[in-house]
Simulated assay, not measured.
Amino acid sequence: MRKWMLAAAVAVLATLGQPAEAQQKYRFAVVPKAMNNPFFDLARDGCLKRAKELGNIECIYRGPVEHEPATQAQLIQDFITQKVDGLAISVADVASATRSIKAAVDAGIPVITFDADAPGSARSAYIGTNNKEFGLALGKQLLALRPEGGKYAMVSGGPGAKNLAERVDGVREALKGSKWVEVSGSPTFCNDDVALAVQQMADLKSATPDLAAIVPIGGWPMFAPEGFKAFVNKNKKEIDAGKFTLVVADTLKMQLELLRDGYSNALTGQRPFEMGEKSMDALLALKKKEKIPEIIYTGLDTVTKETVGQYLK
């Protein structure tokens, strides 16, 4: 009898001091817009790191290979069928995702959005960039570099993504009242296709030979570094003479290296790694019935040729 009581006491003591959630394992799915976009690789890495630190979390990272809202919706439905414990979604199309999020919440699965939001949906929170501020920062960078103005164009991703529409609005607001004029056909939409983004830049420059600036509001063209270099080299004389300027969104390592090597004029970057980390914390808190802020901004980094070295460290 004493041996039985001792064993029971040891078992009880072994659980003391451990957080309650340590007794429960959770499977959280992270659904990016497109898995061929290296931006989301960093969100995945942040998710996996935080899941490992927490110990009782499995981070499942799966999305469409390319930017396909219908495929994203199907994947979310698959996760609902699998009864995952939580979903973090970068919304490719607001209307489609709003329906998918409702289906998940109706099934008892907490949902947050990251990177791209669907604010009218049943999601509990958004984690990511203040995208209007992001666009304003890009526009202000261009204005600081070229206050004399000129003709400019933007390259965007998917036309149904609210975060990208907010960035476009931010750039326009920053340049309103200046000598910068947006050309017809801007923004173009590459649907996260990096090769297409480079081609669209070339098409914009060909259509408007005196185009003074291009502002990709996502890093897509730089994610195809060889194609991006070829485009820049073709226009290097104008860039070096200060007649053609490239202000690009995001600050992935390859982009920082391109900026260092003279292939762009400035970058404004998000923090996707933190988005992945905070998504795990938020979903865990929701599973524990804890309240979380509806909006969690992860901040921006503004990088120039003068400061790029410290970011590469």
Rank of each mutant, 00 (worst) to 15 (best):
L283G: 01
A144I: 00
K313S: 14
R50Q: 15
P32N: 09
Y126V: 08
N131Q: 10
K278S: 03
I60T: 01
N56D: 07
P272I: 07
G108Q: 13
A73H: 02
D203T: 06
K179I: 14
P187A: 13
A20D: 11
K132Q: 11
A34S: 15
Q255M: 13
G46F: 09
V248P: 00
I112Y: 07
Y297V: 03
W180V: 13
A249I: 07
G157A: 15
I217V: 15
G135F: 14
C47E: 01
K83F: 04
F28K: 01
K236V: 11
V31P: 01
A197I: 04
M5H: 12
I214E: 02
I89D: 00
D115H: 06
Q310W: 11
A266K: 02
T304L: 05
V308I: 03
A29L: 02
G149Y: 12
P159F: 09
L286F: 06
A34G: 14
L164R: 08
T251K: 10
S206L: 13
I80R: 03
C59N: 04
T268N: 14
R260M: 05
D169C: 10
V10R: 09
A22E: 09
P64H: 05
F39N: 08
K288I: 02
G218N: 15
I76R: 06
N37K: 10
R167M: 15
L75V: 08
D45V: 03
P272W: 02
D93S: 10
G218S: 15
K289L: 07
W220S: 12
S186E: 10
G158N: 14
K151Q: 12
A107N: 09
A202S: 12
F189V: 06
G108M: 14
A249N: 08
V111E: 05
G158F: 06
A212L: 11
A20M: 12
T98P: 02
Q74Y: 07
L312G: 03
G218F: 12
I214F: 05
A118M: 04
A197N: 02
Q141W: 00
A8N: 07
A7R: 13
L142C: 05
G170T: 14
N235P: 10
P119R: 13
W220C: 07
K305N: 01
E294G: 10
K305M: 00
D117L: 09
T188P: 05
L6A: 14
A125F: 04
A285G: 05
A104L: 11
A230G: 06
G309D: 15
Q18E: 11
V198R: 02
L259Q: 03
D281M: 05
A97S: 15
V30S: 00
A73D: 03
P110W: 09
D78L: 13
K291L: 04
Q141M: 12
K52T: 13
A165L: 14
V12A: 10
